[in-house]
Structure formats: structure tokens, C-alpha cells
Design a protein around this nucleic acid. Sequence first.
DNA 1: GCTACTTTCCTTACATGTATAAAAACTCGC
DNA 2: GCGAGTTTTTATACATGTAAGGAAAGTAGC
Lengths: 223, 223
Amino acid sequence: MQQPSPAPRKATGRPPRISREEVVDTARRIVTEEGVERLTMRRLASEVGSTPMALYHHVRNKEELLVLLLDDHAARTLRPTELPSEPRERVVAAAAAIHEALCACPWIVEVLTADDLMSTHALWFVEQLVDGLVDCGLSLERAVQGYRAIWYYTAGEIVVRTTAARRRAGNDRPTYREQVFAGLDADEYPRLAQVADRWEPLTAQDTYRDGLRALVAGLLAAH
Amino acid sequence: MQQPSPAPRKATGRPPRISREEVVDTARRIVTEEGVERLTMRRLASEVGSTPMALYHHVRNKEELLVLLLDDHAARTLRPTELPSEPRERVVAAAAAIHEALCACPWIVEVLTADDLMSTHALWFVEQLVDGLVDCGLSLERAVQGYRAIWYYTAGEIVVRTTAARRRAGNDRPTYREQVFAGLDADEYPRLAQVADRWEPLTAQDTYRDGLRALVAGLLAAH
DNA sequence: GCTACTTTCCTTACATGTATAAAAACTCGC
DNA sequence: GCGAGTTTTTATACATGTAAGGAAAGTAGC
């Protein structure tokens, strides 16, 4: 789609009036200023001074646009930094860095699930993750499996939590969860009944890192 | 929304011509026969002999309809069964049962993230999960945190894998992942380059249970 | 300059979820 | 039977993503 810079750039055909970069930049501006829900193809088109369908020559569809936005975000926030040298801590830190970067733009939820590998700009962290697992004694295959488990956990945490938050924001009616807890049979579900009133604060806590550490520990303990 | 049976059922207002149950049943038929992508509100309306907007009196919106479908599915497949008595195995088995049930209808992905608690009909398994963790020696708080970690991991696995599969099905152009691997710098990312050609088969494997066991082990090891 | 070709852009059209407001169909008090 | 009230159904309309086909704007060969 987009050649590396030294590509000779064939000078034929109608010259473009907008560029992919311009599209992505404008989209990012709209998203950061007004939120992702205001990003529509029509709005974006008028903002770059074009028509909706013209965008589709620079972007396959809206989803790809969001992927590009995510990539853009990753490029800005995810820089190779100092990671702990101790391999296990390196794994935790790399995963946490990815997690943190993703949490910062919760709108990517729709896209997050795009692939089992993240954007180019997160590759370095993925490398650190896999490498760290290998340094901990896992085989390469095991390390990749471990990475995927960590990615599942991370993606799931973000997706579940941000959609839950989004739901809470928009709706004032009782949650499905509240309904469930309300009609809970304490004889049949003693444990759940026991925590019913504490569920809200309990699930509000950010326990990502705890779970991550547990997962990593478990992955390593399996030899 | 839906009262328990002994509710006196006020007999006032225009009598309904369709019921929520009928709507859900028809929706399920469409989904199982032709796939979720064929389930549109118009189609569903014409199938039950009504108009699109009439559906909205029995269902808040399409998403709620999907949640109901999921609940319906859970009710059919998730029955309390024999679980291992050993608590750790019970936890694994309960999570795996939920996972399996969800994998059977991959279309719920859009809905899966709805809440951090599943449908009523999965409650029994959640109870077993939390109870098993407590029996393993965790405090109740820790057990709930553990349940949530397991849920994140499970939801993430399903969401990521089914969207990846869906993408593969619809598109013949190269994946983002393939593009990334193609232009991989082996010096900068030695580990990833090392597994680049094995990535496809590696990620095709079903490693849910392995990761699950690792996670549970890690959660328990944290005392 | 003219024709062929290529790339980008624009117009139109459609499917979809759903908001809004009105109409329809019933019960109840009289 | 009649108006008031309530619930369900309908008609209409809008915003959105995007498919399809053609128009515009350039280059290359002649």
C-alpha cells in the first residue's frame, strides 16, 4: 500500500489532493479533541476538504483508519526505554508498558482485537517479552505461547474494562450485573452472595499487574 | 423488565402481538441457520411478522438482543455438571466449561465484553470458580480478583482468536502481521525473526488450557 | 494536439440501527 | 357507549459506512 521512501513514485494518473498522512493526522485531531464517537467518514472528509469516498483511496475502511491511529499512538508513546535487566521483571515491565499505552486511548477497543500482534511500534516490547521469557528458561515455542497468553490477558483486561466503563457512562439504568446480584439465591450461590455488596469496589480496583505477575509466575513454573 | 411468573400481568394497554421470547427465538433461528451477519432488525421484524421498530418494545436494542441470545445459548449448553472435587481442578474445569460454551458461538464477540459477569446461566460456574479458589486457600477478595483475571484471560482469548479467524476468512490480502514479519529486522528483533516462519502454526494451536493452568497456578502460588 | 492509460476524486445509492411522533388497540371509570 | 389512560405498533426520518460507476486530471506515445 505504502512504499518505503526510495520508491520511485510513479508520476502517472491524477495527482492526489490529500494524502494518507493528512487523513490520519486529521483523524487523530478529531479523536483527541472530540472523542472517537465524533470521528465519522463524512466529518473527516469535510475536515480535510474532500468527500467521504475519496478517503477510501487512502484507507481501506474505517477500521484500517483506526488501526493506523493506534499505530500512530504507539509510535508516539511506546519508545524503547530502560527495562529491568532481570528477565522476569523485564517481561512484566514490557507487558505493563504495552498495557499502559493501550489504556491511554480506550477507543481502540474496536481495533484491539485486530490481530494477535500489535502495531509495528510495539514490536520492540514484544521482542523484549519473548526474549525475557526465553531468558527465564522457556523454550522458544513456550515463550511464544507465553507471550500469547499474556496478550490475551492484557487485551481481555482492556476490552472488558473499557466497555464496562463506557456502558456505565452512557446508561443510568441498572446494570445486568446489578440485576443478577439483586435476584441472587444465597443458598445456591453462597460465595457470590457473600461478595455481592462488595463487588463494585472490588472490581473497580486495578489489578492488572497482580494478575500479570501471577500469569508470568505460572508460565515460568511450568518449566 | 421481565417479571417472575406470579406477577399479576396488568391487562391494560394494547395487547402485544409479539413477545420477547418470540423475538429471541426467531433471532436464534436466523443466527443458527444463516449466521449472525444475516441478523438485522428488519429481517427479524419481517420474520416475526412485524415492523422493525416494534421489536424495540421487547428489546432495548440490538446489543441487548445479542446478550439475550448469549444467555439463551448458555441456558442450553451450560448445565451444572460433575466437576472435579479437587479445588484447583475444579477451577480449571469451570473456566474451561465457560470457555468451551462461548467458543461454540463465536458471534457473541461483540457482546462478550458486555460485563465482567456473564449470563445468569453461567453463574453456577462462576460460583464454582470463586469457591474453588477459596478452597485453595485464597481469601475471598483474592478469589474474586483471581476470577476476574481468569475472565480477562478467557474473554481475551476468545475475542482475539475469533476476530483473527473472521479476518482471515473474509480477506485474501496479506495480514498486518504478515506485513510486519516480512519487513522484520533480524538484528533488532532476533527472537521474533527466529520464530517468524513458525508463527502461523504456533499461533494456530489451541493453548487456552495451558495458559489457564499457568494462570491458576500463579494465582495460587501468590498465597 | 490527440489518444490511451492510470490514478484520484465525486455522485449517487443502499443497507443498517434507531430516534421521534403519531396511530391503534385495549381496559377502566363512568 | 364514551373519554381517559396505557401499552404496543407503525410510519417516517436520519446518520452512518461503503459499494458502484463514472468524471476529472494528470502522463506517455504518437
